[in-house]
Amino acid sequence: MQDPIISIEGLHKVYDSGFTALADVDLEIQRGEIFALLGPNGAGKTTLISAICGLVRQTSGKIAVDGHDTLEDFRKARGMIGLVPQEVSLEPFEKVLNTIRFSRGLFGKPADESHLESILRELSLWDKRDSRTSQLSGGMQRRVLIAKALAHEPEILFLDEPTAGVDVELRKAMWDTVNRLRERGVTIILTTHYIEEAEAMADRIGIISKGRILLVENKKDLMARLGGKQMTIELVEPVDTIPDNLAPFGLGRSEDGHELIYDYDTTADRSGIASLLSAISSEGLKVKDVHTRQSSLEDIFVGLLHEDGAS
């Protein structure tokens, strides 16, 4: 195991209102990975990011960025981080290039026009460098936020709901940008509501609910471990009830009786498919079609939240 680039121990955040946003959070983010933090609204995703970035004061616990404590050694810790916030917040009357220059300077970096040019070109904003940010479309404004976050060449990039409210084309373009950044060694932490986003990009998934981390796991392992398969057997003639000799298989039945549904575990020694099909045949039921479906991350996510009583 590599040494983590972000290490969080016993993080607790209680707002002045008394609301506990984070409860005893322990989390390690590995260098160079894409980590997706999933959770329903109000789960604590943004508070967690804000605490790491210094926007929210932690009530207790420790956060270290590449070994630098975010409170005692905040300059080094924050200097490594770029943050793309959830809301589009830009100085409306400022020009794109100026606002990016400002961001770079704010992080203590000397002017580097060629670096800023390369960022703007990569995000297809170079032609808009002299436009005021208020004149840009919503998608372009989101890209300006990314450009601002990248202006000081951070090693860690936080993307808080980066594709909320953007169209499919822009979302794919953002995924490409994120993948290119990862190839350069940038560690990326993203929060998202879009399960497909996490499924498409993340190396590891963290699920947070009610301020607690419910699970952190490698995406592939998670899907293999929790992701069961489902087989749907379409029948030529509907059945009113499931025949007695099929009861041991724990089948489900569609409302119209045309389909039998069988859940099975791909990691088990025997899936039971052959014996099920044989039992169906001996029962005299005629099969029209059979298809299978892998559980998505969304199914896993919803299942976990149900277990936690969050939804």
């Binding site: 970035c53 210094g54 905040f74 810790a77 924050r78 200097g79 943050l83 917040s89 203590g108």
Partner: peptide, 11 residues
């Protein structure tokens, strides 16, 4: 306008 986040998260 919300841009204060940048100043507060800077070193």
């Amino acid at each position: 306008i919300g841009t204060i986040y940048e100043v507060l998260s800077a070193p």
